[in-house]
């Protein structure tokens, strides 16, 4: 197990992401922040807070559960059984720019599922993907628009983002 980001590094990275996202959202832009359950949800809440401060305005924030859109539901190999949780997007996403947030971009399959799920909810003006870690080795033609840190971690290793709200501590580890 190797810690590649501590609390301070994560905080700096989120500040940096906030700046870069804010720069693409001129005054009057109709946008919303949506996090992918579970760690993306926590990151989305933090980024929504810093973004609101930076931009001096409020905007809608939601949570997306992508379980029903996963492409591996019938593939028994792999991790534990996926659990269906709730999607909480109580605003209209039509014509909004959606800042979609996840903790790690790896194969790109979660992002694909999230885009399909969003499009079933309406027709956003654009979807932009923001992730804390891009670990490379994508399996689909999907790239992040904003990433906190890019690392090259092979498939034999796991990248885990731990966040205080869920895990009691802020760190990113590779094991």
């Amino acid at each position: 197990m190797k810690v590649i980001m501590d609390a301070q590094a994560i905080s700096r990275s989120l500040d940096d992401l906030t700046e870069r996202i804010a720069a693409t959202l001129p005054d009057g832009t109709d946008f919303a922040v949506i996090g992918i359950r579970s760690r993306g949800e926590v990151l989305a809440q933090r980024l929504a807070g810093t973004l609101a401060q930076r931009l001096g305005r409020t905007f809608p924030c939601g949570t997306l559960d992508i379980t029903l859109y996963r492409d591996d539901l019938n593939e028994p190999k792999g991790k534990g059984q996926p659990q269906v949780r709730t999607t909480e997007i109580v605003f209209d996403i039509n014509d909004k720019i959606i800042i979609l947030i996840d903790d790690v971009l790896y194969t790109g399959r979660s992002a694909r599922a999230a885009m399909d799920a969003l499009i079933d909810l309406g027709r956003p003006k654009a979807i932009r993907l923001a992730v804390l870690i891009d670990r490379g080795h994508h399996e689909l033609p999907i790239q992040a628009d904003f990433q906190g840190r890019s690392i090259d971690v092979g498939p034999e290793e796991t990248v885990r983002v731990r966040l205080t709200e869920m895990d009691g501590t802020d760190q990113v580890i590779v094991e």
Binding site: T67, L68, R85, T86, D120, G122
Partner: peptide, 11 residues
Amino acid sequence: RGFEEISTRSI
């Protein structure tokens, strides 16, 4: 609970 939302959408 996670399935309730499907019935509230336009699609």
